[in-house]
Amino acid sequence: MKPAILGMAALFAATTALSAAEIAPGDVVFEDGAVAASITGVVGDPVNGRMVVASKKHGNCIACHANDEMPDVAFQGEIGPNLAGVADRYSEAQIRGILVNADVTFEDSFMPSFYRVDGYIRPGKRYTGKAADDTFAPLLAAQEIEDVLAYLMTLK
């Protein structure tokens, strides 16, 4: 019985640790624009991250950034830099910081903050044109940020 109880306790501790590890949007700690620690404690999934980058319904990163690794995706934007080689130009912590809130790294950046919920002027309820309500959430979920990061780290 004793090992089983210990096993249960270990599982419980692990579960608690997981949920406790997800950092709320307002609690992310930056150092020179970079965010060193994972905001979920769960390793990112690059396959899902790739989908989030390309999909209009998710990150829609391609709206502004072309990406040589996705020649199959039509109408890639011309606003930000090409994502090719992004992992050569920035560290993992720097990219995480840019995804969470690019303004910390690049002052007055055109890039939206993908994991932030406050400080907006006239925040709306998604694309309805109506005022934000209690469903207001960051543009991407914490794990989506980690997934996108995992994908971008493959672009070397």
């Binding site: 055109f110 939206p112 903050s113 002027i121 207001f136």
Partner: peptide, 16 residues
């Protein structure tokens, strides 16, 4: 810059 995407008219129509 308005909204959750924080875009002004100028961001698109002057800068880009």
């Amino acid at each position: 810059k308005t909204g959750q995407l924080e875009m002004s008219c100028a961001n698109c129509h002057e800068d880009n």
